[in-house]
Design a protein around this nucleic acid. Structure first.
Lengths: 137, 137
DNA sequence: ATAAGGGTTCCAGTCACGGGAAGGTCAACC
DNA sequence: GGTTGACCTTCCCGTGACTGGAACCCTTAT
């Protein structure tokens, strides 16, 4: 099977597959004409990689996951640790984004968004101490 | 004021400040010896950029925000539109991460994490149709 | 004179690809 | 047999927003 069929099968761009070969994640065979030749096992690995990437695992995590997958004597604890570490990173990223969302959301709510120049968003960016709340007497 | 003092003042690495100059976000003066010389206005801009970046705005968004900030005839609507577009992206990213978190969280919960090789995480990666739930009779 | 602690430029690397050029290969059609 | 046109190959550059490091200049203190 040639690269474009493999790509369609795995749901990955051909460019990505070439890249995965370049960095040693897969090793498809070669036909006499130099074309890459993808066997069942290669397709399986590509699908595995696509799913791991879609869960946000880094390429290096994917490499480790693939190695664990192929190691029949693996301990599920190793896989779980890797996944938990990734979950921690996901949670941290979500927390960071939610904070941005909250801050920026308040500022956007306070901004009139009309033709006048006064803007609490710019005010906050230019002076961190500035607040969008109304003054209290 | 030299670059390291400016960096300390703005809470940004000196490298980042040089980069911001390189891409035209700031234009500090130069002393006779070739050292960058940061004036009040430069420090203010750097702080502005630092806060905008910490809210997740891209460099190009920061450039636009800075231009709006310096345009006394700006319309707050322009700022608000930019911020709302960014908020949309933040929300999309959060949604994506939460889906990863949910999926991976279920898999981690279902994984024994011991010395045995059986692992629902790898099972799911190797076969998307696999489910971590217990079989129902 | 020298050593330290600034500053400067430029080059390379990061991550995970994507775009595009230049050229080889294959199947089909006239 | 020639010619499309689709597919394949390698190679190199660009992305975003920096970060690290080399090689070298400037200032101040000993």
């Amino acid at each position: 099977m040639n690269i474009n069929q493999a790509a369609a099968h795995a749901g990955l761009p051909a460019k990505t597959i070439r890249y995965y070969e370049e960095i040693g994640l897969i090793r498809p065979g070669r036909a006499a004409n130099g074309y890459r030749s993808f066997a069942e096992a290669d397709l399986h690995k590509l699908a595995f990689l696509g799913r791991a990437r879609s869960l946000g695992f880094s390429i290096e995590d994917c490499r480790a996951l693939l190695a664990l997958y192929e190691d029949r004597a693996r301990a599920s604890g190793d896989v779980k640790r890797l996944a938990e570490r990734h979950l921690t990173q996901i949670a941290a990223k979500i927390a960071e984004l939610r904070e941005m969302q909250a801050t920026l959301g308040h500022l956007v709510d306070a901004c009139a968004g009309d033709a006048r120049p006064d803007c609490p968003i710019l005010a906050r960016l230019s002076d961190h101490a500035s607040r969008e709340e109304v003054r209290r007497p």
